[in-house]
Design a protein around this nucleic acid. Sequence first.
DNA 1: AAAAACCCTACTAAATTAATAAGGTATTTA
DNA 2: TAAATACCTTATTAATTTAGTAGGGTTTTT
Lengths: 144, 144
Amino acid sequence: MRLSAKGEYGVRAMVHLALHYRDGPIPLSKIAVDENISRQYLEQIFLSLRRSGLISSVRGVKGGYSLASPPGEIFLGDIIRVLDGPITPVNCLSKEIREEELPSCGRGERCLARSVWEKLRDHINQLLDNISLQDMIECKIDQM
Amino acid sequence: MRLSAKGEYGVRAMVHLALHYRDGPIPLSKIAVDENISRQYLEQIFLSLRRSGLISSVRGVKGGYSLASPPGEIFLGDIIRVLDGPITPVNCLSKEIREEELPSCGRGERCLARSVWEKLRDHINQLLDNISLQDMIECKIDQM
DNA sequence: AAAAACCCTACTAAATTAATAAGGTATTTA
DNA sequence: TAAATACCTTATTAATTTAGTAGGGTTTTT
């Protein structure tokens, strides 16, 4: 039950952008240094985030990245799903996997564990989909 | 945010034992076949579960494994922590890691993401520590 | 024109996870 | 008491995933 480094880096980088929202684009190299993340690895992460529409970029000197929407409209679930794929405790719950590819547990609806995994999945998603970057920079998490 | 196969197999096997609680010891080979898990891999899993005191074993012909406590007293969190280690979304929250070994994020209390990971960790643990094997075999999950 | 900064693919290395192998030990039953 | 059953254990390998590097490109500003 661990988040990947990619997801963790992504969230930290997005918080960084949130803190500088309206300061104009922030160069990736600055974020990489401040957050202690390899520049080239962070480029991969930002490539995904940009393609998914969560951030936008400006090229050239004085360019950089900025949030595509206000911090209050971007949720942790969005970020993590883009970087790590669907948030699900076991593969067989993921809708993106087609029936044929299902792991060989072959138990279908008979699986007593299934409803637990579904509940766990829904819990995690609901939590992450209700925490915005704004909540984070305002330190509202503890009161949630 | 995915459970390992080990954790998943472990839970399924424990549910199996719960369904046969009071039937006397169930041979591992039977569980392996019924749950479609490699016998030798399941042996490793049961070794951990036994050493942690969640199950007990009887050797020899007519031997096998059984739950060490009633199904109502064994919780999913117990099983998963034994097999996968502490349930924590990011390493830096795990108490089992000493300060010196902390990953190099080097941000300590300044980390805005930290309280989110803590909240997520607590949520997941609380959920898993409140679902017993008894709940599962009685299909009470959906009403929780 | 040069510098700054984004853009992108491919590859490699590291770590983790999953599984297999191979043999040992204890207990029951014919 | 011998054979069969089934647990016990460590070591090794295979597979997969994750993390990170390399190396080049393009765009824009000064």
